[in-house]
């Protein structure tokens, strides 16, 4: 089963995030470009575009199952997350399956995550 829904404090509004450039920003102020630039300078990590293709009830109570197609290869990846878990959507910002719960638990303003949204994810860079 997925790990129980602890409260990752890095999603709490006001949490200080260090970019790979060394710059510090609050989590609610992050923009798409911050992730893109961080991946560029971090070495070994790359940003993938992960498109939400389905959102289902999880077999685990209190979780939702998100289905993505990831990266250029359009690989299918599914993950179970609590509905309040925020994802960063290109051009939109933080989004979750339950913006109300995200606001309640993290005070982080969120859009509703929907099928078709393109989220930022990371993977290991292919070192040839």
């Amino acid at each position: 089963p997925p790990s129980s829904s602890h409260l990752p404090s890095h999603f709490m509004k006001g949490a200080i995030i260090q970019l790979a450039t060394g710059e510090l920003k609050r989590v609610e102020d992050l923009q798409t470009q911050d992730f893109v630039r961080s991946a560029e300078v971090s070495g070994g990590l790359k940003i993938d575009s992960s498109t939400v293709v389905d959102i289902q009830e999880s077999q685990w109570p209190g979780f939702v199952m998100l289905h993505f197609v990831v990266g250029e290869q359009q690989s299918k990846v599914s993950i179970d997350v609590p509905p309040e878990h925020p994802f960063f959507v290109y051009g939109q910002g933080w989004s979750s399956c339950s913006p109300a719960r995200t606001a309640q638990l993290f005070s982080l303003p969120c859009h509703r995550l929907q099928v078709g949204d393109v989220c930022i994810s990371i993977s290991l860079q292919n070192m040839n």
Partner: peptide, 25 residues
């Protein structure tokens, strides 16, 4: 006066999921 207090700093990559596609052939 503002008393100094320790503030946690989180790395940017802790905020985004690591979605590793299965290895292509």
């Amino acid at each position: 006066n503002v008393e100094p207090r320790s503030v946690a700093v989180f790395p940017w990559h802790s905020l985004v999921p690591f979605l590793a596609p299965s290895q292509p052939d």
